[in-house]
Write a protein that binds this DNA or RNA. Structure first.
Lengths: 118, 118
DNA sequence: AGTTTCTACAACCATTTGGTTGTACGTTAA
DNA sequence: TTAACGTACAACCAAATGGTTGTAGAAACT
């Protein structure tokens, strides 16, 4: 079983910020489907190599991809665990919502209010 | 059954960007658990009312919260559907990964390579 | 050895972001 | 009607973002 390490606000910031860009999401998509070098990736977008390299850097900072030197190339690999982690973060919000709906149900079920919360 | 409307790149950008800030995530948390006015929210953070109002604006643009006038107050309500939508977006990435692992399994299962891909 | 390939890094620039203060307007309470 | 409350909006500012070009180094081919 994998231990669920606590993510700091700053780390969560980085994860969502990294995902808030279509080019970066596409890089994640490609590198989850199969490894690709930075040049491979750069060929897919209408921007400079340097720009793509920066995007990969942002994703790496967020832990969404890792770079593995292989000769003179740097292979980029998507990290599915971080994606799963982001999903679990959103899970927590949905749980809050369900709790709220539960409380509203209680209110409707007990209009006599035997124990009204503050 | 709810129809799954297609989200544009720009919309997805807005959703993840809105989530890439700890204050905004906290606002989502609070407004999913129960409605709150902008003033209620502003009292919780060490920044000006205007700053909090801007954060709510960013969340509203992303569809993560809605504002409902109630007298002179604007009640802010979290939108759990958008959260669920974001989760489903991440689902797609995980699926890609599972496909990849599936392909690697095939490779290991058939080392005689009856049909090697390019 | 020399050249090409793949990459990183620094400097620079325009735009966006996240914060501020000040002004104004609709709604409620005295 | 006057005052107080809740809010939005505009103007402004410093810092971060997303792009560019240019320089330079390490690995591989000839």
């Amino acid at each position: 079983m994998v231990v669920e390490t606590e993510l700091s606000d700053a780390e969560v910031d980085r994860i969502f910020h990294a995902l808030a860009d279509a080019t970066r999401r596409d890089i994640v998509r490609r590198t989850l489907a199969g490894d690709a070098s930075v040049t491979d990736l750069a060929a897919a977008y209408e921007m400079s190599f340097a720009a793509v390299s920066k995007h990969v850097g942002v994703l790496e900072e967020a832990g969404l991809v890792t770079r593995h030197p292989e000769g003179r190339r740097r292979m980029v690999r998507g990290n599915p665990e971080r994606i799963a982690r982001a999903q679990r973060l959103l899970d927590a919000y949905e749980r809050l919502w369900r709790d709220r709906v539960g409380r509203l149900d209680d209110l409707l079920a007990e209009p006599t209010s035997t124990s009204t919360p503050a």
